Amino acid sequence: MAAKKKAFDFERALGELEQVVTAMEAGNMPLEESLKAFEKGVRLTRECQQALQEAEQKVEVLLKSDEGIETKPFVDTEDDTYDA
């Protein structure tokens, strides 16, 4: 029997990502530790992005299921300089 997938905790993952970034910005880590932290940060970023995409898709499906509601593509209004 396959194991049940553990629910993703977006807020926990985002908090961990913030801790990783803060630790790396301090610049006090040896190279090997920095690489491990970077790998963790990339993994957390991807997981958070996936969770956000899934939430956006759920909202779009819910809006499409109601008659009379028009869906529009999500457009980020913030001026982010970070592209993932």
Rank of each mutant, 00 (worst) to 15 (best):
A2P: 10
A2R: 09
A2Q: 12
K4C: 02
K4L: 07
K6T: 14
A7Y: 04
A7M: 08
A7N: 09
A7Q: 14
A7W: 01
F8K: 07
F8E: 10
D9L: 04
F10W: 04
F10I: 12
E11P: 00
R12N: 03
R12T: 11
A13T: 01
A13E: 09
L14I: 03
L14Y: 11
L14D: 09
L14E: 11
G15A: 15
E16N: 12
L17C: 04
L17T: 01
L17S: 13
Q19V: 05
Q19S: 14
Q19I: 03
Q19G: 03
Q19T: 08
V20D: 00
V20M: 01
V21P: 00
V21L: 06
V21E: 02
A23S: 13
M24N: 01
M24R: 05
E25C: 03
E25H: 03
A26Q: 13
G27E: 08
G27F: 05
M29T: 02
M29F: 06
P30W: 06
P30M: 10
P30N: 15
P30V: 11
L31Q: 12
L31E: 14
E32P: 01
E33S: 13
S34G: 15
S34V: 01
S34Y: 06
L35T: 12
K36A: 10
K36E: 04
K36F: 00
A37V: 00
A37L: 01
F38A: 11
F38I: 05
F38V: 04
E39D: 15
E39H: 06
E39R: 11
E39Q: 15
K40F: 00
V42M: 10
V42S: 05
V42W: 04
R43C: 01
R43D: 13
R43Y: 06
L44D: 01
L44P: 01
T45M: 03
R46C: 05
R46G: 08
E47T: 09
E47I: 10
C48Q: 07
Q49S: 07
Q49I: 11
Q49W: 04
Q50Y: 10
A51D: 04
A51K: 08
A51V: 10
L52R: 09
Q53A: 15
E54S: 12
E54F: 02
A55R: 14
E56Q: 14
K58W: 07
E60P: 00
V61F: 07
L62D: 07
L62Q: 14
L62F: 10
L63I: 02
L63D: 03
L63E: 11
K64G: 05
S65A: 15
D66N: 10
D66P: 00
E67I: 04
E67S: 12
E67C: 02
I69H: 09
I69K: 14
E70W: 05
E70I: 13
K72N: 08
K72I: 07
P73Y: 08
P73G: 09
P73C: 08
F74E: 10
V75H: 09
V75N: 06
D76K: 06
D76Y: 05
T77M: 12
T77L: 15
E78N: 10
E78P: 01
E78R: 15
E78K: 13
D79T: 09
D79V: 06
D79G: 03
D80A: 13
T81S: 11
Y82N: 09
Y82F: 14
A84H: 03
